[in-house]
């Protein structure tokens, strides 16, 4: 009886081990290290969606590390991730200093593949790929829509803070608005945070009070406050990164979509085609990583079909480079 029990115990211990060995992971594991926190229903959530899809479709082992805008965590979190995962995606322009160092995680983990999302280094080793997005192109369309819908002759934008990536949105937005009506005023407001919706609401209210009747939110979770402000004063807003129409279908006219998750998904699921170490990949409108979303068909639409057609035509012009949207980044061709 005793021997039997011992045997049972040993077997029960061994079973999970055997099972684990039988089930070798088919795809490499991947971890995203986000500079802020999940739940912004925008940038970081989009990245998370990408790896969630990987887990669902390929059974990929995935992980998320949130830094919550704590600068002291950026570097150590990358190390933590690199120790355990085959692919590490640093999601957020904020990681630039941690990756730029001489003894950075890149040189200490040469076998790990790194993705730097939303920003680019100047020269970097083969195990890193930088992915930037042509947010200026999508923001151009958003600016065009804003200017078309504006009756007051002023449109606004709330940015997370004053840095190149956010300014790239704003430059495109401004160009689009001016392209539609050269007289329009484009006002900007920086919240200096991506995690504080209350601050975002203050910024948006300042813009609405200042005469803007449509505001583009480019500030992650801070942007939620922009939508709250739009509801309070009953004016319009434009979402960012994900299709945010569902948050307030009556007031969010469209969203500038940046498929961060899709790009991570593509690189990890099909590295032979997508992973180009040592290069910067500018995911743009042509390849479909930048787009404009109007929510689902059941949602009330503020953008007329006619305007949508104009936007579609503009999109083609941008893709064929008939229209060159200005950018903060000097894109190396």
């Amino acid at each position: 009886m005793r021997k039997f029990l011992v045997l049972l115990l040993v077997l029960s211990l061994a079973c999970p081990l055997l099972a684990a060995q039988a089930e070798q992971p088919k795809t490499p594991s991947v971890c995203i290290v986000v500079a802020g926190g999940l739940g912004d229903r925008s940038f970081y959530d989009s990245a998370n969606e990408g790896i969630t899809r990987l887990a669902e479709e390929f059974g990929t082992v995935t992980g998320v590390i949130e830094c919550k805008e704590d600068g002291s965590l950026y570097e150590s979190s990358l190390f933590d991730a690199a120790e355990q995962y085959d692919y590490v995606a640093a999601v957020g322009w904020q990681f630039i200093d941690a990756l730029k160092k001489d003894d950075s995680v890149l040189s200490l983990f040469p076998d790990t593949r790194f993705l730097f999302i939303d920003n680019a280094l100047e020269d970097f080793p083969e195990n890193l790929m930088c992915i930037t997005y042509a947010q200026n192109e999508g923001s151009f369309l958003a600016g065009y829509i804003a200017a078309s819908l504006s009756q007051s002759g002023a449109v606004g934008v709330v940015g997370g803070d004053d840095n190149d990536t956010i300014n790239d949105f704003i430059v495109g937005y401004e160009a689009g608005a001016k392209y539609c009506s050269p007289e329009i005023r484009v006002e900007r407001q920086y919240a200096n945070t991506y995690e504080d919706p209350a601050k975002g609401k203050e910024c948006a209210l300042a813009l609405y009070n200042g005469g803007c009747d449509i505001v583009f939110a480019v500030a992650g979770k801070t942007g939620e406050g922009v939508f709250e402000a739009a509801r309070e004063v009953d004016k319009l807003a434009i979402g960012v990164d994900g299709d945010q129409k569902y948050i307030d279908p009556d007031r969010i006219v469209c969203s500038m979509i940046k498929r961060v998750g899709q790009s991570i998904y593509d690189v990890v699921s099909n590295p032979d085609e997508y992973f180009r170490g040592g290069t910067v990949w500018n995911a743009n409108m042509e390849t479909g990583y930048i787009d404009l979303g109007y929510g689902s068909e059941d949602d009330p639409q503020q953008v007329s079909n006619q305007l949508k057609e104009t936007i579609e035509a503009l999109k083609q012009q941008i893709i064929s480079e008939e229209i060159v949207v200005p950018s903060v980044f000097a894109v190396a061709e």
Binding site: G37, G39, K68, E195, P197, A198, K201, K221, E224, E228
Partner: peptide, 9 residues
């Protein structure tokens, strides 16, 4: 002021 709770609000 807002109509939801967010982390570290």
């Amino acid at each position: 002021y807002l109509s939801t709770f967010t982390e570290n609000m």
